[in-house]
Amino acid sequence: MGGTIFLVNFFTMGAAPVKIAVCIKRVPEMDGAFKIAASGTAVDETGLKWDISDFDGYAVEAALQMTEKLGAGEVHVISLGPDVVQETLRKALSMGCARATHLKCDVVPFDPFAIASALAAELQGGGYDLVMFGKMSIDSANGAVGLMVADLLGMPMVHGCSKLDIAAGAGTARREIEGGGELVRFSLPAVVSIDEGIARPRYPSLKGIMAAKKKPMDVKPAQLGPVRLTVQKMDLPAARAAGRILGEGAAVVPELVRLLQQEAKVI
């Protein structure tokens, strides 16, 4: 018993303050009505509302909870894009992150490697114990930037964590896999990406919103890597065809069965 208490104290009180970076993306809220822009290769942004990508929001919350649990350390938040991403960074600051870095570029490229190169250049030498991502952005859904950053930084990478704990130079994480789960252990520094279910993002408090206005926001040009991947064309899902009413009552059942077998081929 005594030994256990000693270990807990050692990890939480004695450990050096942990430094976590969370990389977040500004995305349109998914319940809006989407249209394709005149270019045919992007979404028309008129009238859309924007927020932190869902999985990135879970990552921010998980990072804040870890530093709160350890009683020491701070969370930095990084985003890449035009000036409007500063709104999204402020939101993370109002949740409790300590400082923000805006990697400025006019357009967010589609190529994950171009983005990963800019993030890795910023994170390199930042002294982070842990670099966190959402497991994918909910708009482009590549799920690749975190993996590429890990490779560029030469760090271990755990993709899709549903639980996460760090202490004294190492971390443990749980991943949900088909039909079960697995517990993994990794050395720090490391890159992790976060799955849903880890933590519900907190609502910024009024105090948090006001404090966020005074927290540091560094703005730097994004050192994007080469763009070798672009979107050629976007399309919307085909509209659902109208249903067909065959009639009412038991008399139409044979016809229904025939159509399900021969036309729809589902039974």
């Binding site: 927020d51 402020r90 939101k91 109002s94 609502y203 910024p204 009024l206 919103i209 006001m210 206005k213």
Partner: peptide, 22 residues
Amino acid sequence: EEVTPDLLASVAEEAGKLCEDL
């Protein structure tokens, strides 16, 4: 002294999200 138009709009925005989600 710290109240700016942008602060007012930001607080309104976060309050709005709280209302929608909670």
